[in-house]
Amino acid sequence: MPQISLHSPLGPLTLSEEDGAIIALDWGWGRDQTETVLLKSARDWLHAWFDKPDGVFPLPLAPEGTPYQKKVWAALLKIPVGKVRTYGELAADIGGSARSVGQSVGRNPIPILIPCHRVVAAHSLGGYSGDGGPDDKLWLLEFEGAWPVLNA
């Protein structure tokens, strides 16, 4: 599986591609580096995004998961930069419970590109699966201008 790594404000990140789509974004530097057109484009988009967080990732994404997880991840893509939603709000929109949404958000294999950091608990930041945990989530939300304002 082709992979490419990049330096970011959150540390090294590695993108993985399969069948012409991004399937994973992981913290850390990947062992193998294969520059495909898609991976180079994704890396360039991330570099630009880390300069100015704007827009929705424009390249193909193919996260592997259950139909419900994919439904949750599709909802995450609709949360604009600088905004947040709660697990409960998402559950009310797509069905399920705040807990089932939280579990699906926590299993997102393509963080940042599928912006799981934009989902918070009703009265707290909530968790984050990135290498730095909630500190990375807080950094991303502050970077996007969404924290501590919370959509005010």
Rank of each mutant, 00 (worst) to 15 (best):
M1K: 05
P2V: 04
Q3K: 10
I4P: 00
I4Y: 01
S5C: 03
L6Y: 00
S8M: 01
S8L: 03
S8A: 07
S8T: 13
P9R: 12
P9V: 07
P9A: 08
P9F: 04
P12I: 00
P12W: 12
T14L: 05
S16V: 10
E18D: 14
D19T: 09
G20C: 13
A24F: 00
L25P: 02
L25A: 04
L25D: 03
L25F: 01
D26K: 15
D26Y: 02
W27L: 00
W27R: 11
G28K: 13
W29N: 06
W29F: 11
G30L: 11
Q33K: 09
Q33W: 07
T34M: 12
E35P: 12
T36L: 02
T36N: 03
V37N: 11
L39R: 00
K40C: 10
S41W: 02
S41H: 09
A42N: 02
A42V: 09
R43Y: 09
D44K: 11
W45A: 10
W45Q: 10
L46M: 14
L46H: 02
W49V: 02
F50P: 00
K52T: 08
P53F: 08
D54I: 10
G55E: 10
F57K: 11
F57Y: 14
P60D: 04
P60I: 08
L61S: 04
A62L: 05
P63G: 10
E64P: 00
E64M: 08
Y68H: 10
Y68V: 03
Q69K: 10
K70Y: 01
K71C: 07
V72I: 14
V72A: 13
W73G: 11
A74K: 14
A75W: 01
A75K: 10
L76R: 09
L77Q: 13
K78G: 04
I79Q: 03
I79F: 00
P80N: 05
P80R: 07
V84A: 02
L90S: 06
A92C: 02
G96V: 09
G96M: 07
A98Y: 00
R99N: 11
R99S: 13
Q103P: 00
G106M: 04
G106Q: 01
P109W: 00
I110A: 06
I110K: 01
L113S: 07
P115R: 09
P115K: 06
C116K: 06
C116N: 14
H117I: 01
R118S: 05
R118G: 13
V119E: 04
V119S: 04
V119H: 05
S124H: 14
S124K: 12
L125A: 09
G126V: 08
G127C: 01
G127L: 05
G127F: 02
Y128D: 07
G130I: 03
G133E: 08
P134D: 05
P134A: 14
D135K: 13
D136H: 15
L138R: 15
L138V: 04
L140G: 06
L140P: 04
L141M: 09
E144M: 11
E144S: 12
A146L: 11
W147C: 03
P148V: 12
P148I: 12
V149H: 11
V149C: 06
L150Y: 13
N151E: 12
A152T: 08
